[in-house]
Structures are given as structure tokens and as C-alpha cells.
């Protein structure tokens, strides 16, 4: 397919950012800009433009979801997971967000010369366990080794395919006014667990990542015929970025209520110390579900019964208003907007 927007000159003005910045991968505005101005015009097609966590294609009457994700986390091992379990769950969740049943994964390893074999084995074992838990199989892979100093120990890419059996079209454009927005538990734990491990911050109790596969939880909702309009897993950029992406793609205002958004006490405390807003902190086992308001109660019951949905609540709703804003009622009763961050959150001075 040709695209009239695509030109051979770089679509991002060079003078803005002559070099790639970390924020270009941070899940915020800069990354959105890079994707929308460079990648999408370059590779343009109707499927890509749905901009969902995974894309659904129909092949000979069978609907298949396909996705890919790369993992470059530091530290490699953290409370509640490691780069291996992340690499499995991240891709499984991206497939589940299309309502697909994840089936097969690929694994691409980029290893740095000198990386301890024992750590690689720990990571591979963790991938095996996570794949079993999520009920998926690795059926192909690739291995590359780069010179010492040219990598960060290990990078992993996984791609995955899943089968879409539901007749529902679970994509951002299916979101409707009045939809209830549900989240499957407390937010911000993964980002803080990583940060604490990376920076040697110590808290009274260890904060564990929420890293988990969500395909079982989604399947339970589908099995009970919940009218799901859209699902989105909360990864980098956190809850705020996910809500903003959906609000923008459906051109509807989303309203949430600060007092009901679940944040664990220790996560909240860590955020206060670091000057972070938990709304923007990364998660790896959390999703938001946009469901028909009449199904919200039943959906919450189903979610709360699942091991990765214990603590599910409704945090807000989609309004009639045609604006792309996310607004939040503060605990003391005023309303403010919840914007997308331009890059990553940076720890403050005092």
C-alpha cells in the first residue's frame, strides 16, 4: 500500500532531536511522536494504523493476533520477576489485549560477550516457567552475541501469535460513551520494584513487581460474555498514558476518580520520596478494561475471583464529551487533567 504522507526526507525535524533520546522509548509524548511521524508513515497500512497492543489479521477465515516486544530491563533480576518472565508475560499480555488466546512465541536473544552462563540459565528457566504458566510454547528463536561493551548483558525480543475466537472487536475504536473503566488491581508496583532494585533504595518491606500473564483473566471475561470494548495493558507510562492513548484515539473525554485508584501504601510512599506520580509508573501485570456499563458489576466479580484480578475496581468512565482529555476528580473534590508525560519521570531534587 502506498502512502501519500510518506516522503524520503526524515519526517521528524532534525533540529528538534538530531539524536535518539531515552525518552523516545519512554512511552510518553516523544515516543508517540516518533511512532506517528516516522514508523507509521513509513510502514503504513490499515492494520498497523489500529495502533493496538497487538494486530488482528484474518487468514483463510481464521483471526490471528500478532505482536512483538523487546526487553532491555536493568536490573535483570528484581523482586517478583526477571527479564525472562517479563519477556513472556509482556507478549502474552499484548496478545490478550486483543481478546486473543496466546499460543506460540518466538525468542530472540542478543547476548553480550562475557555474560555469565549461569545467569542466562536462570533467565531461560524463568521463561520456561512463565510460558508454562501462561500456557504458551516457544516454537522458534534466534541467538546473536555482540562484543563485550556493545550490549547490556542481555536483550530479549519475543513475538507471539494468538487465536481470536471472540466475535468482539476489542480495539480502541470500539470504546463508547458510558463505558466503565476497570483496572485489575493496585498500580505502580513494577516500576517501583525496578527502581528500588536498580538504585539500591530500601523500604521496610520488599516491593514486588506485579509481573503476570493476563490471558487467563481476559479469557474468563470472554467466557462469561462480558461486552468488552477495549483492553490495554499498563506498561511504561503507566495508567495515565494508557488512558490518554485511548481518549485520543476515540476522541472522548475520560473521567477518573483519584480516591478509588488503588495504590499500595509502600508504593505510594516510594513515589512520594522520589517525586513520582503513581499514575505514570510502569506496571507489567495490570490492564484497564473498557466494558459496557451494564456489564461492569459482573465483570468486576469475575476479575476479583482470578488470582491476577484480586483488587479489581472501577476507576472511571468514558463521557459523551468530544475532547481527547483525561480528567481526574482529586481526593478533595476538584478536577484536573491527567496529561501524558513527554518523557520518563525524573527523580526530583527535594
Amino acid at each position: 500500500m502506498t502512502n501519500k504522507n510518506f516522503t524520503t526526507t526524515c519526517p521528524l525535524p532534525i533540529e528538534d532531536y538530531p539524536n535518539v533520546m531515552l525518552a523516545h522509548g519512554g512511552g510518553g509524548k516523544l515516543m508517540k511522536n516518533l511512532i506517528e511521524k516516522m514508523f507509521i508513515p513509513a510502514f503504513s497500512n490499515d492494520i498497523l494504523e489500529t495502533q493496538h497492543d497487538s494486530s488482528v489479521v484474518e487468514i483463510s477465515g481464521t483471526k490471528i493476533a500478532f505482536t512483538t516486544d523487546s526487553f532491555v530491563v536493568n536490573p535483570l533480576f528484581f523482586p517478583g520477576g526477571d527479564i525472562g518472565s517479563l519477556a513472556v508475560n509482556g507478549t502474552v499480555n499484548d496478545l490478550a489485549m486483543s481478546g486473543a488466546k496466546p499460543l506460540f512465541l518466538s525468542a530472540g536473544f542478543i547476548l553480550e560477550e562475557g555474560f555469565p552462563m549461569i545467569e542466562l540459565w536462570r533467565i531461560v528457566s524463568s521463561m520456561k516457567a512463565a510460558a508454562e504458566k501462561a500456557n504458551v510454547q516457544f516454537i522458534t528463536g534466534d541467538t546473536k552475541v555482540v562484543d563485550n561493551g556493545k550490549g547490556d548483558g542481555i536483550f530479549i525480543n519475543t513475538a507471539g501469535i494468538g487465536l481470536v475466537e471472540t466475535p468482539l472487536e476489542i480495539v480502541p475504536k470500539s470504546v463508547q460513551s458510558g463505558d466503565a473503566i476497570l483496572v485489575n488491581g493496585d498500580i505502580g508496583r513494577h516500576g517501583i520494584a525496578i527502581m528500588a532494585q536498580r538504585e539500591g533504595l530500601e523500604f521496610e518491606s520488599e516491593i514486588e513487581s506485579d509481573c503476570a500473564p493476563l490471558n487467563g483473566l481476559v479469557q474468563n471475561l470472554l467466557d462469561e460474555n462480558i461486552e468488552i470494548h477495549c483492553l490495554r495493558d499498563l506498561t511504561r507510562g503507566g495508567l495515565a498514558s494508557a488512558l490518554n492513548e485511548i481518549a485520543t484515539s476515540v476522541n472522548r473525554q475520560i473521567e477518573i476518580d483519584e480516591s478509588v485508584i488503588p495504590v499500595r501504601e509502600d508504593v505510594h510512599g516510594a513515589c512520594e520520596i522520589l517525586g513520582f506520580d503513581p499514575l505514570y509508573v510502569a506496571n507489567e501485570g495490570r490492564m484497564i478494561a473498557f466494558v459496557a456499563p451494564s456489564d461492569a458489576k459482573k465483570a468486576l466479580e469475575i476479575m476479583n475471583k482470578h488470582e491476577f484480578g484480586n483488587g479489581s475496581v472501577q476507576i472511571g468512565a468514558v463521557t459523551e464529551t468530544r475532547s481527547k482529555l483525561v480528567t481526574m476528580k482529586s481526593t478533595i473534590g476538584a478536577t484536573r487533567i491527567v496529561d501524558m508525560l513527554s518523557g520518563e519521570q525524573l527523580p526530583r531534587i527535594c
Binding site: V20, M21, L22, G275, P347, R348
Partner: peptide
């Protein structure tokens, strides 16, 4: 540096750009 100094614009660039370079 503390994190939030990195994005403050100097006359030509910021510290994050220095890092990227």
C-alpha cells in the same frame, strides 16, 4: 545530578542531550 536538572534547557541544549551524545 538530581534527575530534574537534566531536562532544563541551557542556551543550546540540555544535559539529557549531552547524555545522548
Amino acid at each position: 545530578s538530581f534527575g530534574d536538572m537534566l531536562r532544563v534547557p541551557g542556551s543550546k541544549k540540555d544535559l539529557l542531550t549531552v547524555k545522548a551524545e
